[in-house]
Write a protein that binds this DNA or RNA. Structure first.
Length: 917
RNA sequence: GCAAGGGUAACUAAGCUUGGCCAAAGGUGUAGGACUUAAGAUCCUAUCCCGAAGGGGUUCGCGGGUUCAAAUCCCGUCCCUUGCACCA
């Protein structure tokens, strides 16, 4: 296929949507995926992170969910009682921000949502729905429905009876309980924290409040405010590179900017007006003294701290008064901006080199490389290149006691020394100039009383490491990365001033940050219904109830009524049965955040079997060769997938398109090649005729044996979560066997009849709809989705027959090779298999007692010894039985003989002699 | 710079943990053939080099080493990709 015109031909062979819908409805009607406690059965809880409900999901998101479903269905198939639940995440600012933007008629946002809705709604309804999105909960509600629909269409065996959202009241009780625990454990503490802030709105801003914040991220950068002493007042510059201090030749101010004198810590300091505003939000006790004229600064000389040289102040229009303090120091030896400015304005200047990199990347070479004197486009890029190079490879020179130290260690050192000498102060700045969507400036302010989770405790890290080391990892290599991430964690700000979420129980000015409220939420899946009942009944869930349910602590039940008691007891029973999260599936970018918190918070609160059991990390998905992004126009929604392709084809592509851990490229060419095989599968099953004759022929025996040996591979690969390898065995290899069967003169229907039952079950985790359809068509009226596979395959494999087939193929390969060499000149192939004499000889040889008349065979035997394999095959019978097949494949007349002589060139076991004449 | 992953035949991609059955799976592409009025689809065969006998030669980034034996283990080296944070 390869384009949209596929539907007339191959596309039509796929399961069409109505068939998929038919089985979806049947599954739902019979509630077959609702998981119930069955004490006698081993349970398996598999989770995938809950989706965030501010939009619909695309082909990339679908991978982890699809893998989750494949695993869930597989485990169910081999007899586990499986719980595969799902809930929705609404915490944080994005939904709120989108809602506000819709209310403000922001064009881009309206367009974005119109695009989402166009796929799901009739055009005349769209405006009304978008209007309703002025209320944030309507966005969340709408898209959670969309996601449920998409997930259902994709055939996921999710137990939706447990769904909830992070904004649900009952869930928030559980979050509060968790934070009370963390507090009791001494893991919560307060501190200062820099945040992005809007002056006009007097509020913290998130990525979604910032103009282009999603495409061009803004982050907080820590500058070093360096104070230069003057006669009447000091002056402050803000630098990312304090280590270049010894290379300072002068200072720059902007001739057109507004400068002021402020008083801070009993000293007068010059700074730009907007620098003052920021500074006052970052430090306490900053007072504005007066506005000053630029000349008051220009006429002064200032002392470079630590170094004490006097430098002058010059004017330069490239200095941005809104950036930092609006005053910068000039280091032409290591700053491209400074150097270029001097050059372009034909000013005299000194260069003092203070960083040595040992290579030829420096200010001058980069200016030449990018022709920066004539072309300023690349100024920023070149600057970054230089900073990176000097940071990682640089060593200080000409810098008094700091000389000889590497830049990356000395930067912190100099910063510390400056602060210690009272000549330095931390100055936060945004990584780029940013404004909110309403147009007010975004700056960095310091937030007092920020709450942190303290992940630096040794006892906690140790427990987390133990937990990681006893978990299963797919693939294994992530275990080390996970351990590293744990070591790396320090303090994590865990609450914010705004957004959707749960209030901190002991400080309700704060809302728990959205990753921090999602660390142990999987416990809720086990008993969401009961917890909701308790909440609805009592209007709250007391910590002591949660302690009883989740921590097996004691509870005085007397104070609760019967209904509550019933729910509490059921909740505990369900939790105890279902928890441990046996497998969590997500992607590597979560290692350093979500997964680390997931493991840490579990380690803090839980023990033993309730700690995480396993982790599977799937690689990223790209679409048509590039990263999925709106700007590339390669976002393909899950809805589009089920409509244009089919759920089963998508799922099959996810399973066999790439190893779980590798990058997966969703592109037409690769889809087409998977589709080709899938269509073949569909066709043979559609055309299957149940009245096919059963046959005990050799080739059917081989076919069945081969099938079960593939099934064996499949099972062992699935146990190792090597989903691709597993399905190559059970899908591609079996299809190939069917073709071989046909080539050998067998009948596909007769072959299918022998394996259909088990084949459909084994395939059903990946292509559940097709398997369901054919199961009902050809087997029985129960659901294949709930069938249990007989995993005892060993006695169904006849290794002798497999060996015979291998032998046959070997002989054929030899015949073809000889034919090729003699340019297909022969007509008849005489094949002679070994006889009694050869057998006797080998026995004698092994006993080292060779009779005289046999000695002529020694040389030949030695020569061929390592190609001889004796698998006790009746070679003569195998070849005779397949004579017509061999004749068809080789185009030669085949004659089979059994050796009756002692010869110089003998046939040996596994290696007959072949003569083509 | 640090950390992690990777470099395999025209392309893509397995294999490497547990060395031998690896000239190295699968897919794509290419060539020939079958089917077909034709096209498409499908199927079969071939696809590192040499060879009128199932054989030989040279390959798995590069250079060494261990071994009877290395794509696989060890050492060195070059190149590529990603991450270096508090953002969901």
């Amino acid at each position: 296929m390869g384009n949209g015109y596929c539907c007339g031909c191959t596309g039509g062979m796929n399961m069409d949507n109505s068939i998929e819908q038919k089985w979806r409805n049947a599954w739902d009607k019979n509630n077959i995926f609702e998981a119930k406690v069955e004490a006698s059965k081993k349970k398996f809880l598999v989770t995938v992170p809950w989706p965030y409900t501010n939009g619909s999901l695309h082909v990339g998101h679908g991978r982890t969910y699809t893998l989750g479903d494949i695993v869930a269905r597989y485990k169910r198939m081999i007899g586990y009682n499986v719980l595969f639940p799902m809930a929705f995440h609404e915490s944080g600012t994005p939904i709120l921000a989108f809602s506000e933007r819709i209310a403000n008629n922001d064009k881009d946002t309206l367009k974005l949502y119109r695009n989402y809705l166009m796929e799901y709604e009739k055009s005349e309804n769209i405006d009304d729905i978008i209007y309703s999105f002025r209320e944030p909960k309507n966005i969340a509600e709408y898209f959670s429905k969309v996601i449920i629909k998409d997930f259902s269409d994709l055939g996921y065996s999710i137990d939706w009876s447990r769904k909830f959202t992070s904004a649900d009241n009952f869930y928030q009780c559980i979050v509060r309980w968790q934070f009370d625990h963390l507090k009791t454990l001494g893991l919560l503490k307060k501190g200062e924290y820099p945040i992005l802030y809007s002056i006009n709105d007097e509020n913290a801003v998130g990525e979604d409040d910032i103009k282009d914040g999603d495409t061009d991220k803004v982050s907080v950068e820590e500058f070093t405010g360096v104070l230069f002493k003057g006669r009447n007042f000091d002056l402050i510059t803000a630098s990312l590179r304090p280590e270049t201090l010894f290379g300072v030749t002068n200072l720059w101010i902007n001739p057109d900017a507004d400068y002021v004198i402020i008083n801070y810590g009993n000293r007068d300091i010059a700074i730009s007006y907007s620098g003052y505003i920021k500074f006052s939000l970052q430090h306490e006790g900053v007072k504005l003294v007066k506005h000053i004229n630029k000349d008051d600064i220009l006429k002064e000389k200032f002392k470079v701290p630590l170094y004490n040289a006097d430098v002058s102040v010059y004017e330069a229009n490239f200095v941005d008064p809104d950036n930092g303090s609006g005053i910068v120091y000039s280091v032409p030896g290591h700053s491209i901006f400074d150097y270029v400015y001097f050059k372009k304005n034909n000013l005299d200047f000194d260069i003092k080199k203070v960083v040595e990199t040992g290579n030829d990347i420096n200010v001058e070479s980069l200016i030449r490389k990018y022709d920066l004197l004539n072309n300023s486009d690349k100024l920023k890029e070149a600057t970054q290149e230089l900073y990176k190079e000097e940071f990682y490879k640089g060593t200080l020179i000409n810098s008094s006691k700091y000389s000889g130290l590497s830049v990356n260690e000395v930067r912190e050192q100099i910063k510390k020394d400056l602060i210690h000498e009272n000549m330095g102060i931390i100055f936060y700045e945004t990584s780029r100039k940013a404004e909110t969507r309403s147009g007010s400036l975004v700056i960095v302010a310091i937030l007092k009383d920020q709450w942190f989770i303290d992940y630096s405790r040794d006892w906690l890290k140790e427990k987390a490491h133990d937990s990681i080391n006893s978990m299963k990892f797919y693939p294994e290599l992530y275990r080390k990365l996970m351990n590293d991430a744990i070591d790396w964690l320090k303090e994590r700000p865990c609450a914010r001033k705004r957004g959707i979420g749960t209030k901190l129980p002991f400080d309700n000015r704060w809302i728990i940050e959205s990753l921090s409220d999602s660390t142990i939420y999987m416990i809720t899946y086990t008993n969401a219904t009961e917890m909701k009942n308790i909440y609805d009944h009592l209007g709250d869930i007391e910590d002591e109830i949660l302690d009883y349910v989740y921590l097996n602590e004691n509870l005085d039940m007397g104070k609760y009524d019967e209904l509550t008691r019933k729910n509490i007891i059921a909740a505990r029973e369900k939790f105890n049965y279902w928890y441990g999260n046996d497998l969590r599936i997500t992607a590597p970018p979560h290692i350093s955040n979500h997964l680390a918190f997931f493991i840490m918070n579990h380690a803090a609160i839980f023990n033993g079997k309730n700690l995480p059991g396993g982790l599977m990390l799937s690689g990223i998905v790209i679409s048509n060769g590039s990263k999925i992004s709106k700007s590339k126009g390669n976002v393909i929604s899950l809805l589009e997938i089920t409509k244009k392709y089919s759920a089963d084809l998508y799922r099959l592509f996810i399973a066999v398109g790439a190893d779980v851990s590798s990058l997966l490229d969703w592109n037409e060419k690769d889809i087409a090649s998977v589709s080709k095989r899938y269509d073949y599968f569909i066709n043979i099953l559609k055309d299957y005729n149940r009245d096919a004759e059963e046959s005990g022929d050799y080739i059917y025996k081989w076919f069945v044996s081969s099938f079960y040996s593939h099934l064996k591979d499949y099972l062992s690969n699935m146990e190792a979560m090597k989903i691709r390898d597993a399905y190559i065995s059970i899908f591609y290899s079996v299809l190939n066997d069917l073709k071989t069967l046909e080539n050998m003169g067998g009948n596909i229907n007769s072959g299918l009849k022998l394996i259909m039952h088990d084949w459909l079950i084994a395939m059903s985790p990946v292509i559940p709809y097709s398997c369901e359809e054919f199961w009902h068509m050809h087997i029985n009226d129960k659901f294949v989705s709930t069938e249990i596979l007989d995993t005892n395959v060993e006695d169904k494999i006849n290794y002798g027959i497999l060996a015979a087939e291998e032998y046959l193929e070997r002989v054929l390969t030899d015949i073809k090779e000889i034919s090729k060499v003699i340019k297909n000149q022969g007509e008849t192939a005489n094949i002679t298999v070994f006889g009694e004499y050869q057998k006797d000889f080998i026995e004698m040889f092994n006993r080292k007692e060779i009779k005289q008349e046999y000695k002529i065979m020694i040389k030949d035997y030695i020569k061929n010894r390592n190609r001889i394999l004796d698998k006790q095959i009746d070679e003569y019978a195998v070849l005779s039985e397949n004579r017509s097949y061999m004749e068809r494949v080789t185009g030669l007349k085949i004659e089979i003989l059994k050796s009756k002589n002692i010869e110089q060139k003998n046939p040996w076991p596994g290696r007959p002699t072949i003569k083509i004449i």
